[in-house]
Design a protein around this nucleic acid. Structure first.
Lengths: 157, 157
DNA sequence: CAAAAACCAACTGCGTCGCTCGGATTTAAT
DNA sequence: ATTAAATCCGAGCGACGCAGTTGGTTTTTG
């Protein structure tokens, strides 16, 4: 699960699409002006989203894009996975499974990244477009890791 | 909280350092050969780690690095924050607060990224070097998001 | 037919990553 | 004192992905 601004743009666009979904499909130029994203860049993102089956396209004037499924059935994780390259494998491939070193031994931190990947994916797949629109995030999962020193946290940022 | 392979290298090196901590400091060339990371690259990473106060250096032959605090008091989140650029601000600055658009309105997905950032930071700051060494991850937080459709999850990967 | 839209491919400027090179400083061991 | 092991430091480099641009083509509505 790569996490770049590219995925963010895609999610922004999809939320915008969900928001303005009506009888007529939504054109990319509308989304482009509303979200302040380059039209051609959006085209590239939506090409991937279409191939991933997240949106359907309608060609010709008055055409545009529609969500393939409902906004309550489209998860943020899917959008990000659709547009991001599945990472080019720089050593420990995040989900390697094939083992992350020359010899076959898992590196010491392998489990850590795997768990982190799980956490992120779990969170993002628990959020739908509708959730974002209606501002239903926060709460849900981890209201408090129970005990475990919760005050020694780093300075954050 | 940026998430790149750079931070991963740093964490790998720090875990290695924690593992081989004894009376004598650990030299970077030892870590380099064990972890298969370029020595000069390690030097750059440790320069940042030192400036962040996570390690102390001992110069001269027989020198090397030591953890500034114990392995149970060094959190993974601190390591990553130390080595990664604080991101160059591409629109919605992850933690913007200043607002992410030309006009002052928070973009629709602002809350989402903020929450995601919180999740990641919370997880990574709940894991210490000692935890990684002793393979104490998994479990901890979200054993189950209680209700909320947990079966409709995307294909993962 | 004209215009609006999705489609498509190639290219570009830029920044970061991972790494190299060539040093300099400090300091323990001989 | 010399040597050598180590940290320090800065400049630069090749490759890659990102965000965007250009210049089309196809489809379809009016």
């Amino acid at each position: 699960m790569k996490l770049s601004t590219k995925g963010r743009y895609a999610v922004m666009a999809m939320v915008d699409l969900a928001r303005h979904a009506q009888a007529k499909p939504v054109s990319l130029s509308d989304i482009a002006t509303r979200q302040e994203i380059s039209l051609s860049y959006l085209e590239q993102l939506f090409a991937r989203l279409r191939r991933a089956g997240l949106v359907k396209s309608v060609r010709g004037p008055g055409g545009g894009y529609r969500l393939a499924r409902g906004s309550a059935d489209t998860r943020v994780s899917e959008i990000i996975l659709a547009v991001d390259e599945p990472i080019s494998a720089t050593r420990c491939t995040e989900m390697g499974a094939t083992g992350c070193r020359a010899d076959r031994s898992k590196c010491l931190t392998h489990d850590l990244w795997e768990e982190l990947g799980n956490q992120i994916h779990l969170f993002l797949s628990s959020v739908t477009l509708l959730d974002v629109l209606e501002r239903r995030l926060a709460s849900r999962l981890l209201e408090a890791p129970s005990a475990a020193n919760s005050d020694t946290m780093a300075a954050a940022s």
